[in-house]
Simulated assay, not measured.
Amino acid sequence: MAMTKHPAPPDADERRAVAPVICYPNDTLPKPDLAQYRAARDTADKIGEVLVPPRDARCFEVPAGHFFRITSVEGPQVGDLNLWNLNDLSERFYSGKTRALHGTHLTTGERMWSSFPRLRPMATIIEDTLEWYGIDQYGGSVHDVIGTRCDPYTGNLLSGTQYHHCCHSNLTRALADHLGISLAEAEPHVHDVLNVFMCTGFTRDTGQYFMKASPVRPGDYLEFFAEFGLLGNLSACPGGDCSAEHSSDEAACYPLLVEVFAPKEGALDGWKSPAPSGYDRSHGR
């Protein structure tokens, strides 16, 4: 935190003691029908999988009303997840608004929301084997929407490195390969992520973003319901469990498994994809 030369006023303690107000009370958010989703998942059939290699990324596609699961395999590993509308890359995961609506970390029953002007649920978390972790004594928790993604630009800024297996780079290459476009065309589509399995928070004294060893172990998973057709992109972070660093060829890294499941016919009767935001943009733009 920056040093200040301005002394505290006489009423400083009184000002600090003002109670906070939640910016976006979320009790009016549309509630997912977790019971229906889980019942449909119980009888769903696996239709595909992608193994994401360590220090690399892979894309995957999930049809509307299907499920996808991200699993730690072989060793503790965190991942960076991007999501787009499968048919329109301009609609993508909005981590900032998701954070404002749900908080700094996501778990069961919470959702990944899409960008303006649609602002609708993209994916709903239906199972989280790490939901037991909660918030630890340092203020840390798992599956954050506060970190952006490790990237070569910040690495160069802070330490003059030219590291090319950062999650940003991995996600860019994977998207370019999947869509058959150039790296220059793919890079602007890469966006802030859901840090799957990563354990993070803000320091109490300086308010800095921190990471610590993830509690994830082989077999742990995070499972989602796709609210509409999705293009996903997952990077197996070069920091491994991010216990020491997040851009390194030295950290122990492991693959991540993405599996896609199709519901049985009739299992989701009555369900339909959420409509885009009903806000009338003709007013006050």
Rank of each mutant, 00 (worst) to 15 (best):
P20Y: 07
Q162F: 15
P152H: 04
D151T: 09
E127P: 05
E91R: 11
L231N: 06
Q77V: 09
Y133D: 03
Y254L: 00
V78N: 06
R118K: 14
G180I: 00
H189M: 06
C167T: 01
G75P: 04
F228R: 02
Q137H: 15
D249E: 14
P263G: 10
V52T: 02
S247T: 15
R58N: 05
I22K: 15
T129A: 02
D280L: 07
S214T: 04
V190Y: 02
G266V: 01
E187L: 11
D280R: 11
H246L: 14
P263L: 07
L83E: 04
D220L: 06
A64N: 11
L158C: 14
Q162N: 15
T206D: 15
Y209C: 05
H164Y: 09
A35N: 10
S90H: 15
G207C: 00
C59A: 08
H102D: 08
V260S: 06
M198P: 03
G180N: 09
L34R: 02
D11W: 12
S72D: 15
L101S: 04
N82E: 12
S273Q: 13
P63R: 09
T206S: 14
L194W: 08
E74A: 12
M112P: 06
E259F: 02
F68S: 01
Y138C: 14
S182G: 14
P63G: 01
A176S: 12
T203N: 10
